[in-house]
Amino acid sequence: MYRIVSTRVLAPTITRFEIEAPFVARKRKAGNFIMIRVDDHGERIPLTIADSDPVAGTITIIVQAIGKTTKQLCTKKAGESVLDVVGPLGNPTPIHNHGTVVCVGGGVGNAELYPIARALKDAGNTVLSIIGARSRDLVILEEDMRRFSDRVAVTTDDGSYGRKGFVTDQLKEFLDTVPGIGAVYAIGPLPMMKAVANLTRPYNVHTLVSLNTVMVDGTGMCGGCRVTVNGEMKFACVDGPEFDGHTVDFDELMMRNRTYNEMERVSDELHVCRLTGETQESVR
């Protein structure tokens, strides 16, 4: 059992958890993820580690309640536990001094981006950050990002905060106006990362993306996370999760990620029914 030390709601549906996992906390580097299982009927799902405290023996994860498991997790309070946490998994983000870098985060992807921005800053980079969200209430970690960024730009789809539009609008402006951008780190929904990679390609700026895929074990065993990178089969869990965005077949991955859509809906609806006490035999 892994005890939840604290929880904090960052935005509607987005919660930050500190969880006791001393071995993971000691080893974790920016870009690593854990596999987590809430209870003994639960799925194993990958979540990026946003932060860790090796002394306290805790790790921080930021979770958006979108499916059954994440919704269940987001009902957990401090003092409660999750059944399984394993990590740190995946390759740490390669951190170099590129001169100037742009960190582009979409939605809850900002949680994964934050430790990377921080590591890039520590490595001596000038860090320009773009926080993208659908609307103002879903903008997270703005203050944290400001601490480790030389400039922060916020974009919202509906214009309720910051610049109205997509992260790519802001990124294009940086690419056109800021000299010496050596790399772009983009983490967010797949369509966003695809758009970022397409945008930076003609600028010939190295673009790292972090892929979220279907995973069962997270240690290289199932192969469910396979992606086509540069025409070759790669496993996101052990070969990634970060890859050169210009070489990733995003279209294939987006279709692969739909494999269980219907079943995930069933699982989710059933969970909601259990919570509300209503019975809906139709979802069985």
Partner: peptide, 27 residues
């Protein structure tokens, strides 16, 4: 979609209990 390694197929069923979905969450 629909191509599995034997490892994934069997792990889903044996380790994760997918044969008892939706009682178990793994599909």
């Amino acid at each position: 979609n629909g191509v599995y390694s034997a490892n994934e197929f069997l792990t889903r069923v044996n380790l994760m209990g997918a044969y008892r979905f939706p009682d178990f969450d793994t599909p």
